[in-house]
Amino acid sequence: MSRAFTRRALLAATPAVLGAGAARALSGGHNPFTVAQLQHGGNWNPRPTAMRRLLWEVSKRTSIDVAADATAVTTDARELFYQPFLYWTSDGEFPPLDARAREKLARYLAFGGFILCDSVDGAVDRGAAASFRRELGALTSNRPLDVIPREHVLFKSFYLLDRAEGRMVNSPDLWGITVDNRVAAVLTVNDLGGAYARDNFGYYLHEVVPGGDLQRDRAFRLGVNLVMYATCLDYKEDQVHIPFILKKRRR
């Protein structure tokens, strides 16, 4: 389908388009998976090329048809609701969203949207992570975020993973909020985007610590799993898959 193409063409005329606004699906096909990136009052785009690289990796590793790059959106944008995967990142704290923005995001989650919150500043309880916890709490009547257990399908939606890693490993955990039995928002404090970001010559912009390139690949695997979970939900929990997965895990 042409959704990404037609909208992207429109958005290319606005400064809200990330990067060069390259509105072309990598596969040249239809119905591409797209990522929206939220503009907010803080440093909202510290890793400008991260999502473009993740989309490329998703395209290369899976059957998912992807768009070339993410689209920057505000909570008022009609586009937000056409892109059920929202990437929300920040370097440091950001000011609280207003009531209308929170109302929009709550509706987005309630009707099937998925939010990936990526704190890149390295703090676990301060900085961007604290702002994310505040905002996600506001969307769920101040319910605290829960640690997503390692048995959750998110850790096996494509790759079999046992921890969450990014450019750093501040915490091997992911936190999330659940809406209607699905994890609708995920918070990582490991600067996932930092592991993906590359310059125009193809060099990674940030060193990955402490694990180096292997850790970078595990960060990509987590990204692929998050995309798979957003598009397939608990598909891998279906009874037909469980014997295979258990068998592989035992090996």
Binding site: K60, R61, F244
Partner: peptide
């Protein structure tokens, strides 16, 4: 769901994937 086609390269050994 077809999660991976023969042309896709998951960059890992089969046993690191949850695919059947």
């Amino acid at each position: 769901f077809i999660l991976r086609t023969p042309s896709d390269n998951a960059n890992v050994r089969q046993d690191e994937l949850s695919l059947i």
